[in-house]
Amino acid sequence: QEELVKAFKALLKEEKFSSQGEIVAALQEQGFDNINQSKVSRMLTKFGAVRTRNAKMEMVYCLPAELGV
């Protein structure tokens, strides 16, 4: 569980995922086979993730800066 949270936060820091499906796929690539869209959705809510525009003006998920991840 701890490893999943770390990987999840690291992915969001990249600010390149525009959908929950993309986050699920990226986590599965890292070996988290039991991850699915509903789990990702709950984690996004739990950590207060928001959708914002990145440098390329794409809408992407990211974590609020005050979490200091």
Rank of each mutant, 00 (worst) to 15 (best):
E58L: 07
E58P: 03
C62L: 08
K39Q: 15
V60K: 03
E22A: 12
R42Y: 14
E14A: 12
S19K: 09
T52P: 02
K56M: 10
Q37F: 09
K13L: 13
S41R: 13
M57I: 03
V24Y: 05
A49K: 02
S41H: 11
N34V: 05
K39N: 10
E58C: 02
G21P: 08
A7P: 00
M57V: 03
L63K: 02
L11N: 01
Y61S: 02
P64N: 04
L63A: 04
K16P: 05
Q20W: 06
P64E: 04
V60T: 04
A7I: 07
L12V: 04
T45E: 14
L11E: 00
L27R: 00
L67K: 13
F32E: 00
L4Y: 03
V50S: 07
K39T: 14
R42M: 14
T45Y: 10
K46S: 12
I23S: 00
S38G: 11
S41W: 07
E66Q: 10
Q30S: 07
Q30D: 04
G31E: 02
E58Y: 04
N34G: 12
F47W: 06
A49S: 04
A49M: 03
E29G: 10
V69I: 09
A55M: 06
V50K: 09
M57T: 05
S18G: 13
S19A: 07
Y61F: 07
S18H: 12
V60A: 04
L27Q: 00
F8G: 00
E15R: 06
K13N: 09
Q20T: 12
A7R: 06
S41D: 14
Q37P: 10
F8P: 00
R51V: 10
V24L: 11
G48W: 03
L44D: 01
A25H: 10
S18A: 11
Q20G: 07
S18L: 08
F47I: 12
S18K: 15
N54Y: 02
V69Q: 12
G31A: 02
V50W: 04
F17E: 01
G21A: 14
L67E: 14
A65W: 09
Q30I: 10
R51A: 05
N54M: 02
C62F: 07
L11P: 00
G31F: 02
A7K: 06
R53C: 07
F32P: 00
V50T: 09
L27M: 06
E22S: 10
K39Y: 11
G31P: 00
F32G: 00
G48R: 07
G21W: 13
C62K: 10
E22N: 05
A49P: 02
L4D: 01
R51Q: 10
E3R: 08
S19T: 15
E15W: 06
A25R: 14
M43W: 07
E66H: 09
L27P: 00
K13D: 06
P64Y: 04
K46I: 13
D33A: 14
L67C: 12
Q37D: 11
A55W: 04
P64Q: 05
A10T: 08
K13Y: 11
S19G: 05
A26Y: 11
E3D: 12
A26Q: 07
S18W: 07
E58F: 04
R51T: 07
N36L: 04
R51G: 04
A26C: 04
A49N: 03
M59T: 07
A7N: 04
A65C: 05
G31Y: 02
V50P: 02
K16G: 05
A49H: 02
M43V: 01
G68E: 15
N36T: 14
A10L: 11
K16Y: 04
A7C: 15
A25P: 00
S41G: 09
E2T: 11
E3N: 12
L44S: 01
I23R: 00
G31T: 01
K56N: 13
E3Y: 09
K46N: 11
A55I: 08
Q30E: 06
P64S: 05
L67N: 13
A7G: 02
V69C: 10
V69W: 03
E15C: 15
E22V: 04
G48A: 05
L67R: 11
V60N: 02
K56S: 10
V50F: 09
Q1R: 11
T45A: 12
C62R: 06
F47E: 06
G68F: 03
L63C: 12
Y61A: 02
L44T: 01
L11G: 01
A55F: 04
Q1C: 15
L63M: 07
S18M: 09
L4F: 06
V69K: 12
A10D: 11
G31K: 03
G21V: 12
N54W: 02
G21Y: 11
E29H: 10
F47H: 08
L63R: 02
T52K: 15
E3P: 09
Q30W: 08
S38M: 12
S19C: 04
K16L: 07
Q30K: 09
K16C: 15
M57R: 08
A10H: 08
I35K: 00
L63F: 06
A7T: 05
V24P: 00
R42T: 11
C62S: 13
S38Y: 13
S41Q: 13
L12W: 03
Q1H: 13
R42D: 15
Y61I: 05
F32D: 01
K13Q: 11
K13A: 12
T45L: 12
S18R: 15
M43A: 01
A49E: 03
E3A: 14
K39H: 15
V24W: 04
E14C: 14
L11A: 04
K9W: 10
N36R: 06
E14D: 07
L27W: 00
T52V: 15
I23A: 01
Q37G: 09
S19Y: 09
K6F: 09
L4H: 01
Y61N: 02
A7S: 07
K46E: 15
E66D: 13
C62E: 04
L44I: 09
L11F: 05
A10N: 11
N34E: 10
I35E: 01
E66C: 15
E2Y: 11
T45K: 15
G68S: 09
S38N: 13
Q30C: 06
F17K: 03
G48D: 04
S19P: 00
E15D: 05
E3S: 13
K46P: 01
L63Y: 04
A25D: 08
M57D: 15
F17D: 01
M57Y: 09
Q28E: 08
A25T: 11
K46L: 14
E14T: 12
E22G: 08
F47L: 14
K39S: 11
K6P: 04
A65F: 12
E15K: 08
E3G: 10
E58M: 06
L44A: 02
L67Q: 13
S18Q: 13
C62I: 13
L44V: 04
L63W: 06
Y61H: 02
R51Y: 14
V24T: 07
M43E: 01
A65I: 11
A25F: 11
Q37Y: 09
A26L: 05
N34F: 12
I35H: 01
M57A: 10
T52A: 13
V5G: 07
L11D: 00
Q37L: 13
E58G: 05
T45M: 11
E2K: 10
A49Q: 02
K9M: 14
G21K: 14
K6Y: 09
R51L: 15
A7E: 03
C62V: 14
Q37T: 12
T52S: 11
K6S: 10
D33E: 13
F47K: 01
F8W: 01
E14R: 06
L67G: 13
